[in-house]
Simulated assay, not measured.
Amino acid sequence: MARPRVAVLDDYEGVFAASEPVRRLAGRVDLDVFDAPLPAGREAEALTPYEIVVALRERTPFPAELITSLPRLEFVAQSGGHAYHADMEALSRHGIVMATGRPKLGGETAPQPSLMPELVFGLLFALEREIPTLDAAMRRGEWPRSLGRSVHGRTLGILGLGRHGSAVARAAAGFGLHVAAWGPTLTTERAEAAGVELVPDLDALLDRADIVSMHLKLSDESRGLLGEDRLRRIGPRGVLINTARGAIVDERALASLLRAGDLGGAALDVYAHEPLATDSPLRALDNVVLTPHVGWTTDRNLAEFAEDTVAHVEAYLDGRLPASGVANPAALEVSRDRHGTLTSG
């Protein structure tokens, strides 16, 4: 069988192409790196030659119609721990295996450290100390006055105390914040282990918190969780930070409340539809700080993504990748030609 062809997608920053794991993989496969988005409407044409794809987060969606157009594709190494952008049923139906997250190749897999506190507190301080506004004024030759707001002694309400939420809670202690948390499955034991106060009722947490930081996964239950009524509970001096998923928040209601002053401010890295529309009302509000979904685009994260995805590809080609370590092991039940396989572990 000929060497498999591998496409590394969306390497805009050039981290994958320059990484040792990708250079190593290129020694055993025919490998192409795409450093720009695939041509709109021509994704199938671009990916038709490839048996294996390395995908960088959700930059390239994999809907059913694209998957159906790629008869050679057999394996997708997806960086990050989720695949909201991929039609998993279609992948399985066509016998295409998808591996996500950190490789589970025997032994203990070290958890990937959360870098989310860096962005959360960067956004918070940018908003509360008016850093973007002051920077712009200084560049215009001005010497502006400002009355920033300290976070010390205020209450941070965390929605979702998983890997990212727990890391934010630990960092918050260093700034003198009192931390309270709510989550659909959060227990007293987990809250105590994280050193935070458990508030079992979401509305009660929103009423109490001065700053609300979102760290929930997107699901049927979390979609639209913060509508107008709940956003209003945060109040005219309250702040919302969303680095989780834009669809958890009613974006239209958010913009309306911010414009009216019924919500004090917002710092956002994620949006219901990305890229954020050029005419979004959020872009025109002074009490908002916006970033273009950069929570995961750090040098360290991308280097680890390169290492993890290449490890998945190598293990698949060597027959060392356990079925328990992929998102859809049922895909292997589809009879087709393959360059690799899974183990029964």
Rank of each mutant, 00 (worst) to 15 (best):
D201I: 03
G235H: 08
V196I: 03
P184H: 12
S213P: 13
G176H: 10
W182Y: 14
L225N: 12
G224H: 10
D201Y: 00
S222L: 00
R208F: 00
D203M: 02
E189P: 00
T188A: 15
L225I: 05
S213K: 10
E189A: 15
A209N: 07
L231H: 11
H178R: 15
V199F: 01
E192V: 13
D210W: 02
A181I: 05
I234W: 06
A193H: 10
G176W: 04
I211K: 08
G227Q: 12
D210R: 04
A193C: 05
R230A: 00
D210E: 12
G224E: 09
L218E: 14
D203R: 12
T187V: 07
G238N: 06
L205G: 11
R223T: 14
A191N: 09
V179E: 01
G183H: 11
G176F: 00
A181H: 05
D220M: 07
R208W: 00
H178F: 03
E192T: 15
D207W: 01
I234G: 14
G238L: 02
P200E: 03
G235Q: 08
A193G: 01
D207E: 15
L231T: 14
T187Q: 07
L206K: 10
G227R: 13
D220A: 15
D201K: 06
R233T: 09
A180G: 04
A209S: 14
R233L: 08
L231D: 14
I211V: 15
R190N: 11
L206T: 08
A194C: 13
H215C: 05
D201E: 15
L216D: 11
H178W: 03
R190K: 15
P200V: 04
H178N: 08
G238P: 12
A204T: 13
K217R: 14
L198V: 08
L202P: 10
M214G: 07
M214P: 06
S219E: 14
H215S: 09
G238E: 06
R233V: 04
T185W: 00
E197D: 05
G235E: 09
E189D: 14
D229S: 15
G238Y: 06
M214Y: 04
A181P: 10
G235D: 05
R233I: 04
V239K: 08
L225P: 01
R233S: 04
V179A: 07
S213F: 04
I234F: 06
E221L: 13
S219M: 13
E228Y: 01
D210G: 07
A209D: 08
E189Q: 15
T188M: 02
H178L: 08
T188R: 11
M214T: 02
E192G: 05
T187A: 10
A180V: 08
A191Y: 02
G195F: 03
L202I: 04
L198T: 10
L202K: 10
L226C: 02
R233M: 01
E192F: 02
L226N: 13
G195V: 08
M214C: 11
D210H: 14
H215F: 01
A209M: 10
L198I: 07
L231S: 11
